[in-house]
Design a protein around this nucleic acid. Structure first.
Lengths: 232, 232
DNA sequence: AAATTTCTTAATGAAATGTTAATATCTATT
DNA sequence: AATAGATATTAACATTTCATTAAGAAATTT
């Protein structure tokens, strides 16, 4: 199963945080752990999460304050609060900010998991690729990056593998311009080293084979820099 | 100001039910009270509600069974369960059916109110899957998803099982477009894991067998992404 | 010419999917 | 509660897709 959901967990108790993170990781979530509200907000801004789990009682910046800041930036992301005691006031404040749920510590981990699933299942991916462009036209080709199909106007059409697809999309988005090698590597392969670089070369070769159908299109190499998809 | 939300409350304890109904009424909800699962289901079918609150422990027909029946008719309406004891198993079953939340009796009425607000205020889903339509035409088929009948225009017709029916409906609603695996799994199977995924593959095979009657229709796989129902 | 980078094909193993059959679960009726 | 029939899940095995790595040739830079 791919497309793991990403969870931001903000919890000041390092032991508990660690255990919870591991538990969620085992259950196929990608978890980022922050140990206080300040770090939590920084992490939140640095990448895309699908859900936040916030401890309320924390030093420096408590969970409610953090939640308010997060809501200012993103009004849709689901929030789950953890409260040490069953502090009714905190719970009510949480809901006012727009919490989706809260749990009183100690809580049952299976139930947390059920809640997470329930919440994530009812939120369709608004933020993901749905909104992104996925239909392109270049040379004699139509390219649908959602269906991963590259169609030559004379009739031939190719099914692209995920990596072929991503790479072609980046090339097309930078049409006639340089696509730096390390940019593509970090985005598609999540790492830039000798091996991923070799792998990328293999994929460039594959794409070239497809593009042969239109002799005016070329992927040229800029030695030591990257590649450039161009016409003529 | 007549946009009051309508709540179906199913609770067998008449005293408690009465009190809760009054409390919600005071807070501007229009509440319909049923004293058991059977009456609850009748009331549900007779009018449109925005939310259901179901007691789990009830004579004749318990809350979980009722929830299942409601879900068959309406897959979107939010469900909140009330459990007398904190029966973990019941809670987990509830989430599996598609509960939005649960509360353990005795609970704080203000918190219930906050939960209700939180659930009802949730941004409405704008997914393509939401529709009341139940009659479709595609290829050489007529498909009635309410009666679960797929009819080939030459005469053959198939009775579909609930899961076959749901899956075909989602494919048809996304005709010629990708139906992402995760979306279908979370909607139909309420969970996305290895086993539900295999189960879905089995159902795709079944549907393909039906669709064989029209050779121009195909369900093709987009490796790692999902399926696409298309013509030609 | 030596070193580095790129090009291309092919081999490998892992993961996802296709399909049928065997169990398990559910539901309605006796 | 017992049974049959429908439905759903799991198992098993086949097939396909895919990413990576290796390996040698070619191109580019120094």
């Amino acid at each position: 199963m791919k497309s793991n959901k990403r969870i931001l967990l903000v919890e000041d108790d390092p032991n508990f945080g660690r255990i919870l993170k591991d538990y969620l990781t085992i259950n196929n979530y990608e978890v980022s752990l922050a140990v206080n509200g300040i770090e939590g907000f920084e992490k939140f801004n640095r990448s895309d999460f699908d859900l936040c789990i916030l401890d309320i009682m924390m030093p420096f910046k408590d969970g409610l304050t953090l939640a308010k800041e997060i809501r200012e930036v993103n009004e849709l992301i689901p929030l789950i609060f953890l409260t040490a005691k069953n502090l009714k006031d905190d719970v009510l404040k949480g809901y006012k900010i727009g919490a989706d749920d809260y749990l009183t510590k100690p809580f049952d981990s299976e139930i947390l998991l059920a809640k997470i699933k329930s919440i994530l299942n009812r939120k369709p991916n608004l933020s993901t690729q749905e909104t992104d462009e996925f239909e392109f036209e270049f040379g004699q080709f139509d390219f649908n990056s959602k269906l991963r199909i590259l169609t030559h106007k004379e009739g031939d059409s190719f099914k692209l593998s995920p990596k072929e697809n991503q790479l072609l999309k980046m090339l097309v988005l930078n049409f006639d311009d340089l696509l730096p090698r390390d940019i593509a590597l970090n985005k598609i392969w999540r790492d830039a080293n000798y091996f991923t670089s070799r792998s990328m070369d293999v994929y460039i070769a594959k794409l070239r084979k497809y593009l042969d159908k239109d002799v005016s299109l070329k992927i040229i190499n800029v030695h030591g820099e990257g590649f450039r998809l161009m016409k003529e």
